[in-house]
Amino acid sequence: MAGVRMYPEALPRVDDLVVAHVTRIDEGEGIYVTLPEYGGVEAMILASEATRTRKGKRTALSKLTRVGKQEVCSVLRIDAARGYVDLSKTRVSSEEVAEVEGRYQRSKAVHSIVCHAAAALGLEPALVYSLTAWRLSEQLECHAFDAFCAAAAEPGRIFDEQRTPGLSPPLRSTLLRLIRKRLGPSAASKVRAHIEVRCLGRGGVTAIRAALSKGLEVAGDASAVELKLVAPPLHVLTCSSGTAGAGIALLNRVIAAAKAEMKKHPGGELAVKDAPAAMDEKDADKGRASLLAQLEANEAATASMAVGGSEEAGSLGDTVVINSGSGGAT
């Protein structure tokens, strides 16, 4: 939704890293962009900050980027009164680019959920943000994406009266419906393997196709096994299964059947480059597990402190103090 920012701040701060969408290129001035994380605020990548070049040598800006491209930039200067934001591309490392792009994808997921919930109930997105995403991010000291992911599994620990006061039941139920649909726990594990298939004999491509088809027959029609050619002779096999172990066993059977068929053809060979293994968890699963583990640790620490405090208070209450002056006990 245009004009709606993703963060509480209206503008970024100096030295912040931001995502910028290129809207216009002016060779004499710089690259005009908008900042989607801040409601589409206009900004500019200065011509001198668009690329690292030797002094006196200049590259055309149109060769460095194009209209519609997404760039990651560092904030140089901000004039809040005039709304000017100057950016630099040269002061951002490749590692920072990957980190910021990942953050932006997470922010976009939260943004979509918030805006859809607001539209469904006729509310302002900024209000929904302030009641949920921004508040949870501040209280839990995490990205709102992780908080929403945790809410998909344990809504009572995230959307409670302490962390989200003022959250109406209709808004809560609408948000949870959208969160569970988009960020819910993975229903299946994904497994992947890489194989190299060659046939230097007369069978050639026909033999390779026959061997791979034989392997896929083992999986059965109802299986979610997929085979894709990466670049000859490399192929990738993927499947979805209830558990990682079942998926690995299935791909091993597929590979064994294809390998046995390949041996029947002179010059045929099938080698396993990467054995079947579970693929990385989705970002949603990682964020959910990390935040819930943190909450459990915090709750355990709080409970331990409470028990220790009560025991200390009890021991003080039972203490007998001897008054040496009178010789009596008080």
Rank of each mutant, 00 (worst) to 15 (best):
A81N: 10
P233G: 07
L167G: 10
Q294I: 09
S88N: 09
A20H: 00
A231L: 11
T174P: 00
R180K: 12
R253A: 12
V191S: 02
R253E: 12
C73V: 06
S186V: 04
A329Y: 15
D26E: 15
R106N: 04
A152S: 12
Y7P: 00
T51G: 12
A20L: 01
Q294T: 14
V22T: 03
V205A: 15
V307A: 14
A126R: 13
V100E: 04
L200I: 02
T53C: 05
I45E: 00
V254S: 00
C149D: 04
G28I: 06
T319C: 09
A210I: 10
A258H: 03
L216K: 04
R202W: 08
S173N: 13
V4S: 09
G220I: 07
Y104A: 00
R5Y: 13
E138W: 04
Q162A: 15
H116Y: 06
A224K: 15
F148I: 06
E141P: 05
A144Q: 05
E312S: 14
M1S: 13
E9S: 13
K259E: 15
Y32K: 12
E95A: 14
F148R: 01
P276I: 05
E296R: 09
S189I: 00
T23K: 08
H194Y: 15
K69R: 14
G215T: 08
A275C: 02
D86Y: 06
L229K: 07
V205R: 12
P12R: 08
L178G: 03
C73R: 05
R66A: 14
L229H: 07
N252G: 11
L131P: 00
A80I: 11
